[in-house]
């Protein structure tokens, strides 16, 4: 059996998640021993359409995106969402709370009718996604672990516990002890608590934990004197598509 053929595709995103692959200088040659990269717009000029594993960066935010992602899904045996935008819609999804026509006008002015757009969605909202590598930016070490698992026939494991677990493992002081509201308790771990370890609250870039207790989270944030609007913004930063803040239980 030949080497698996791998492709990288970008959708609505900053393209940093893909680009960071090129920073894996110490591993790139090893990776190329294991896989053939047939499509990677930022790194190679070939555009092969024959691949087994597709890594997708970016959210699905235009009718054209929908068309492309379906085509990729039909070809790929395994689809992996790379980074927050592909995983959960990410920052792009902040605009989902705005009037979509105003958004188009702000960006394209009078030409807005030439650029149809839809709400920014996770790749998994449109096609089946087999695995995800969360985070903004996604973590290259996790990328290597996932790739290793895929190539050895294992299911890649992504933590479902919260960032608190990683903060505790590092014995960080809790930011709440300083009155700082952090998304760590309800955010999926795997970043080794990068932000809280460096003194900043967690933004929630890896998505919310699978069994979110939204009301409990809201109560805690309120106790720490965040207004309803501020709490909403914390959630909307990366997780607009996963919390309906307008629900009755909330207000």
């Amino acid at each position: 059996m030949g080497k698996p053929k791998v492709a990288f595709f970008d959708f609505t995103s900053c393209e940093g998640c893909q680009l960071s692959k090129l920073n894996l200088e110490n591993d790139l040659l090893d990776i190329l021993e294991l896989v053939d990269i047939v499509n990677f717009r930022e790194a190679i000029s070939n555009h092969g359409e024959d691949y087994e594993i597709a890594f997708i960066e970016g959210s699905i935010s235009t009718p054209h995106c929908v068309e492309r992602i379906h085509k990729i899904r039909r070809q790929a045996q395994i689809v992996v969402a790379l980074g927050s935008c592909a995983h959960i819609g990410g920052i792009n999804a902040i605009r989902n709370n705005m009037d979509q026509d105003e958004v188009r006008e702000a960006v394209y002015g009078n030409d807005k009718y030439l650029f149809p757009s839809i709400k920014a969605q996770a790749v998994s909202d449109v096609v089946k996604v087999d695995y995800v590598i969360p985070g903004c930016p996604m973590d290259n070490q996790e990328f290597k672990r996932v790739l290793s698992a895929l190539l050895t026939g294992k299911i890649p494991e992504i933590p479902e516990y919260s960032v608190c677990a990683e903060c505790k493992a590092k014995e960080n002081e809790c930011l709440y002890d300083y009155g700082v509201v952090c998304m760590g308790p309800i955010t999926r771990a795997g970043c080794r608590a990068a932000c809280p370890t460096n003194g900043h609250y967690c933004y929630g870039c890896r998505g919310l934990v699978p069994d979110l207790n939204k009301n409990a989270a809201k109560d805690v944030m309120e106790k720490y004197k965040l207004s309803i609007d501020q709490i909403k913004k914390r959630f909307y930063m990366f997780n607009t598509n996963y919390v309906n803040m307008e629900e009755k239980s909330y207000e």
């Binding site: 591993d27 790739l147 290793s148 494991e157 505790k168 934990v209 207790n213 409990a216």
Partner: peptide
């Protein structure tokens, strides 16, 4: 209703010892 299952209570507990086991093969 108040708990959001962050797991802190277990992790900081002197008598909690449960652990999860996972395998990792170094890429390549």
């Amino acid at each position: 209703k108040k708990c959001y299952s962050c797991g802190t209570c277990n992790l900081v507990c002197p008598t909690c010892y449960c652990f999860d086991v996972s395998d990792e093969v170094v890429l390549g």
